[in-house]
Design a protein around this nucleic acid. Structure first.
Length: 533
RNA sequence: GCGGGCGUAGCUCAAUGGUAGAGCGUCAGCCUUCCAAGCUGAAUGUUGACGGUUCGAGUCCGUUCGCCCGCUCCA
């Protein structure tokens, strides 16, 4: 999440997250997991509408990214973009996570301060004390934080009642302190001594033990990202699939992180689904591909309805880059202004230049050659053909959160409207709307239900694989339109007396509430056009 | 993990320590030719859970689970 970039007041989210969550429950988009047993922190289930919405978003991604190769556009090399899919396991050999850096990096020791209630990463804290002084107080400060260091020096001087020179001071990491030494340590923001707890490991990866015999030595992990399943299959794909660099491997699937504080509805869940692409290219081309992916991914989200000021692209500052991206062309986030982040933004998708970090790590740890032989490169031989070149491809990773995408689409779609009966409607883009259309007989008599069922059958046959086709003959027509507004159904087709005479039906538009008449036989073509088919 | 707020029907919320309710929604019937219309009726609760105080607990106390907000964290 980021600070606001001075958003204009008229565009700031004013929707209530409580109201949105109530609608999600009421209409069956999202339920708390294990609700009947009191729930479980950080886990959420999707109801009928939510499951279809999520599938529609996943399908849109799969279709546009994998099947159409970036919607059929050419890459920066002027050629079609080639992407192939894989589907790797949630549980892999634990060495995968040692190589990727997750075993080390995902186990951050933390210390809490009992006085100030602050929490620090233990490996980010340094300590100072007077040289040779085994009894006197030790002062902790935050590494690379000048203000924090100055405060510690000031407190030390005050304690010693004189100004110490740099040479008189010992510096060491907090993690090197003994339990006894910790008791005489003053926290970075504390006044009292000994308020820091012992460092406690935060295991951000879920672990499990495969096999029927419980033996800690067999410990394995639930993947914290789908990306590594792609990297470890890089060789397999290259060897079997007739792909050549540049190309991408895509995968959707669940990932698990033991978030310290699951928060903000489904935004930070412990079980979540990712949509990831690892795009492999020559190191010299990485910059161009990074820019290509960054721009296209932003455009893709916009085309699904996240247009306007609520969606931004943010390039990371160099000091916030992940360990694998330090040397790269950069990292950019597609961020959405959720009601709970406003006026700031929350990440939907990160596009990172991971360099050759992951392939190099797996090459080292597995002792398997990950280099790629590129026959189109290298110096020209006597026969006029390139001699070829061995190299570790660089990787551009567009990594999107599916659940976060769904949440953003829900928040964006949620549109309060005091002038309409439902008081609110869900303005989903027809392409991702979980209900594609509804068919109503205006009244339940005079052959209208039969005629309506005829249309329903036609639409189910043609569009049923994309989303629900609703049929409703209960209660007044106004209630039925209102119900569809809350569910986000973009078009309602109503059969009335005229339909039986001249074969036309009423089309009711969700967003404008306007009605028009079209021949019933043209409804499939009308809907196909609106769904972008 | 800390602090604050909250938890009663599907949703939004009432109920002085004394019989658990309303509105909306849902369902059924009647009616109804275009926007939650009208009439009639129905279903829905271990008041988040466990324990305690009390003649009696939705209400008071303790514990616990979950959600929201702030801090912290987010390789």
């Amino acid at each position: 999440m980021t600070d606001p970039a001075a958003p204009s007041t008229d565009t700031v989210q004013t929707k209530s997250m409580d109201d949105i969550m109530a609608l999600c429950k009421r209409r069956g988009f999202i339920f708390q997991a294990s609700e009947i047993y009191g729930g479980i922190q950080g886990f959420w289930d999707y109801g009928p509408l939510g499951a279809q919405l999520k599938k529609n978003l996943r399908d849109a991604w799969w279709n546009d990214v994998v099947m159409l190769g970036c919607n059929g556009q050419n890459g920066p090399d002027g050629k079609p973009v080639r992407i192939v899919p894989v589907d790797s396991c949630i549980i892999q050999n634990p060495k995968v996570w040692e190589a990727s850096g997750h075993v080390a990096g995902f186990n951050d020791p933390m210390v809490d301060c009992r006085e100030t209630k602050s929490r620090y990463r233990a490996d980010h804290l340094m300590c100072i004390g007077e040289k040779g002084d085994k009894e006197g107080q030790i002062y902790a400060y935050i590494e690379n934080d000048d203000a924090s260091y100055a405060a510690a020096r000031k407190k030390l001087d005050k304690y010693k009642k004189r100004t110490l020179t740099d040479d008189e001071i010992d510096t060491c990491p907090l993690t090197d302190l003994s339990v006894d030494e910790l008791k005489i340590t003053v926290g970075p923001d504390a006044k009292e001594v000994g308020t820091l707890t012992e460092p406690r490991a935060f295991n951000l990866m879920f672990d499990t033990i495969p096999g029927p015999i419980r033996n800690e030595d067999n410990k394995a992990y639930l993947r914290p990202e789908t990306a590594q399943g792609i990297f470890i299959n890089f060789k397999n794909v290259v060897d079997t699939t007739r792909v050549s660099v540049p190309f991408g491997i895509a995968q959707t699937g669940k990932a698990f992180r033991n978030e310290v504080t699951p928060r903000n509805f489904t935004f930070r869940s412990r079980e979540f689904e990712q949509m990831e692409i690892e795009f492999f290219c020559h190191p010299d081309d990485a910059r161009a591909w990074y820019a290509f992916w960054r721009d296209w991914r932003m455009q893709w989200w916009q085309e699904l309805g996240l247009a306007g000021d609520n969606l931004i692209m943010r390039e990371h500052d160099t000091d916030e880059l992940a360990h694998y991206a330090k040397e790269g062309a950069g990292t950019a986030d597609v961020e959405y202004r959720f009601p709970f982040t406003a006026p700031g933004y929350g990440e939907l998708e990160g596009i990172a230049h991971r360099t050759d970090f992951d392939l190099k790590q797996h090459q080292q740890h597995s002792k398997k050659k990950m280099e790629y032989f590129d026959p189109s490169r290298g110096e020209i031989a006597k026969n006029g053909q390139p001699k070829g070149e061995w190299y570790l491809p660089h990787v551009i990773e567009p990594s999107a959160g599916l659940d976060r995408g769904v949440l953003a689409l829900i928040c964006e779609a949620y549109t309060p409207d005091p002038d309409r009966a439902s008081g609110v409607f869900m303005k989903f883009h027809p392409r991702i709307s979980p209900i594609k259309a509804a068919v109503f007989p205006l009244v339940k008599k005079d052959g209208m239900p039969e005629k309506a069922d005829e249309l329903r059958r036609t639409l189910v046959k043609k569009f049923g694989h994309l989303g629900a086709i609703e049929f409703d003959e209960k209660q007044s027509i106004g209630k039925r339109y209102a119900r569809m507004d809350e569910a986000g159904c973009p078009f309602c087709f109503t059969i009335d007396g005229d339909t039986l005479n001249d074969g036309t039906v009423t089309v009711r538009d969700r967003d404008t509430q306007e009605q028009s008449r079209i021949p019933m036989e043209e409804v499939p073509a009308f809907l196909a056009e609106k769904l972008g088919l």
